[in-house]
Simulated scan of single mutants.
Amino acid sequence: MLCLQSTYHKTVRLSIKRVTGTIIGISFTVIISTHMIINGWNLGLLVLLGGFITKWLKFDKTVLHQVALTILFVFVFEHQKNHYVIDRMRDTLIGVMVAVLIQLVWFRLILPSKQKIS
């Protein structure tokens, strides 16, 4: 639902940014976190490096926020629950698909037909 925006194009753009940030955050954390213990310093270091990588790749702040959140969640929860990475990616994709479907159904099919009636 976080991807749902006022227009279809904005929803798709934000959805792409969320998926991109999630993929970067997951990839970065899985590669590096296996060699680290869980503590605040390591988490801070991962978020800082993930932010630098995101800026180096010239992504905007939406992708940066998603990278930071993904690093936080994956670093903490992957050690507690196996397969959290898969759950995180699946949940992000489901959220993106639901937002796009709502845009397609509600704003492209339902609202135009109501506007024609009035």
Rank of each mutant, 00 (worst) to 15 (best):
L2S: 10
C3K: 03
C3P: 01
L4C: 00
L4T: 03
Q5G: 03
Q5T: 02
H9I: 14
V12S: 01
V12P: 00
L14H: 03
L14C: 02
L14A: 04
S15N: 00
S15W: 01
R18I: 13
R18A: 11
V19I: 15
T20F: 05
T22Q: 01
I23V: 15
I24W: 09
I24A: 06
I24L: 14
G25S: 07
F28Q: 11
F28E: 12
F28I: 11
T29D: 05
V30S: 13
V30H: 13
V30T: 13
V30L: 15
I32C: 11
S33F: 14
H35V: 04
H35R: 07
M36P: 04
I38V: 13
N42V: 04
L43Y: 09
G44M: 05
L45C: 06
L46F: 05
V47Y: 08
L49H: 11
G50Y: 03
G51E: 04
F52P: 02
I53M: 11
I53Q: 07
K55T: 09
K55R: 12
W56A: 12
K58N: 14
F59Y: 12
V63H: 02
A68Y: 03
I71C: 09
L72T: 14
F73D: 09
F73V: 15
F75Q: 08
V76F: 12
F77W: 06
H79N: 14
Q80M: 12
Q80L: 12
K81F: 15
N82D: 13
N82F: 12
H83Y: 15
V85E: 13
V85G: 10
D87Q: 14
R88P: 05
R88A: 06
R88W: 05
R88I: 03
M89H: 05
M89A: 13
D91R: 04
I94F: 07
I94C: 02
I94W: 04
V100P: 02
L101G: 10
I102E: 00
I102D: 00
Q103T: 08
L104Y: 11
L104S: 06
V105E: 00
V105W: 02
W106S: 06
L111A: 00
L111I: 04
K114S: 03
K114W: 03
K114Y: 06
K116T: 01
S118A: 00
